[in-house]
Amino acid sequence: MKGRLLQVVPIVILSTFVVFGLLQLVPGDPAYTLAGEVPDPETVQRIRKLYELDQPWLLRYGSWLWSAAQGDLSSSIYTREPVSEMLWRAFPHTLLIVVYALLLATVLGVVLGVIAAANAGRAVDTVITGIVSIGISMPNFWIAMILVSTFALGFQIFPATGAIAFSKDPLEAIRYATLPALALASSGVAEVTRQLRSTMVEFLGATHVRTLYAKGLPMSNVLWKHGLRNVAVNLLTIIGLQFNRLLAATVIVETVFAFPGVGGAVIHAATNKDFPVVQGVVFLLVLIVLAVNLAVDLLCAAVDPRIGRR
């Protein structure tokens, strides 16, 4: 555990350094963007000095890292908004749709996966695996647009754009997050269903399952109690990976729904080389991914104590 926590430091330094380095490779100088549409060289020089863009990039990275180590993630070079303030404002929105999508993907995926496994090779299995395959095949943004056309513009049940803070009005926040979460969840449902189906089919073919049936246990008991417990480690690993994938997928879905999360913010920041914002988002995401991976490992060890002893 202590070793895992110590890994966080080099991983954060390495990932933020790589991202910072990649941003330097992107052509374009933010001083020109900041200086306006027809900048004169004097204005550009003045801007470069004012925003410390005239410093060598290694020095700027070092300065950023030193501030970050002291809890100051610096400010956006365009809006002057402190990055920590931006993350505090935007990340809860992103987290809401990711958790919501993960819940949907897990609940639907588990139910459909178990049903498909219990009916392996039959028509129900074919229909379920066929339908969930569509979720993988179709891009998120396209599903998002279909959802908006149907449920926001057609039936007018859910809003087409925007968000409400969960802390302000939880029910409304969930209503606003429903369509983005559904769009995000579509591929997750497919992934969980297919993975669960295959591990569950394997489980149902095992000799000890025959014993369970021989003892007279009903099928539902075998599937939902023994089956799920046996595939739990696989399931938790998939959920952990899904969480990380969903975080990345928010970038496009947030744009379609004008959802004010970090996805939209990072696109804007990356295209404009607003490195403090990009670094701040990367810093946060790396911490979250590491925390999720750690949580998954701990949960797996709790479900299967043999893992913890290895």
Binding site: V148, L153, Q156, P159, A160, T161, A258
Partner: peptide, 17 residues
């Protein structure tokens, strides 16, 4: 409200937001 994608902005008007 800043909505950079013109199609999303139009949808926000059609849906009444």
């Amino acid at each position: 409200q800043v909505i950079t994608d013109a199609n999303t902005a139009l949808r926000s008007v059609i849906s009444g937001e």
